[in-house]
Measured scan of single mutants.
Amino acid sequence: KEQQNAFYEILHLPNLTEEQRNGFIQSLKDDPSVSKEILAEAKKLNDAQA
């Protein structure tokens, strides 16, 4: 469930490039146990690119 939530949120971050988004999603698939950390990174990058 946590992985699904992170997946959904990353898909809807407006400021990520397609490449960045795909990278985060691939990381989620590779290691779902760190989905919280991956989501935090994605949000940080999204904010930095706002």
Rank of each mutant, 00 (worst) to 15 (best):
Q26L: 06
N22R: 10
S27I: 12
E37T: 13
D31N: 12
I10D: 01
G23Q: 07
A50I: 11
N15I: 01
R21G: 01
P32S: 07
E18N: 11
K1D: 14
S27M: 14
L11M: 04
S33T: 14
L11T: 11
E19D: 10
Q3R: 03
Y8K: 11
Q26P: 00
S33M: 10
K36N: 12
N22A: 11
F24M: 05
K1P: 14
A48Y: 05
T17N: 13
P32R: 06
Q26I: 08
N5W: 04
F24T: 01
A50N: 11
Q20T: 02
K43R: 03
F24Y: 05
Q49L: 11
A42T: 00
F7A: 07
T17Q: 04
I10K: 01
L11H: 13
I38N: 01
I10L: 06
L16D: 00
S33D: 12
K36Y: 12
N22S: 13
Q3G: 08
A50D: 12
V34R: 13
N46L: 01
E41C: 02
Q4F: 11
E9W: 07
L11Q: 13
L39K: 03
L11Y: 09
A42W: 00
P32W: 14
P14S: 07
Q4E: 15
L16T: 00
L28R: 00
Q4M: 07
Q3V: 09
E9S: 03
L13R: 00
Q20P: 00
E2K: 06
E18S: 11
F7E: 15
Y8I: 13
K1L: 13
E2V: 14
P14I: 10
A40F: 12
Q20E: 04
Y8H: 05
S35I: 12
E2P: 14
N22F: 10
E18C: 08
S33W: 06
E37V: 11
H12R: 07
D30H: 12
A48G: 05
G23P: 01
E18R: 09
K1R: 05
S33P: 05
L16P: 00
N22Q: 10
A42M: 01
K44E: 11
N46D: 03
S35L: 13
R21P: 00
T17I: 02
N15D: 10
D31Q: 10
L13E: 01
L28E: 01
F7D: 08
I25K: 02
L28Y: 03
L39R: 04
P32H: 10
A50G: 09
K44F: 10
K43Y: 08
H12M: 12
Q20C: 02
Q49K: 05
T17K: 04
H12T: 12
I38M: 04
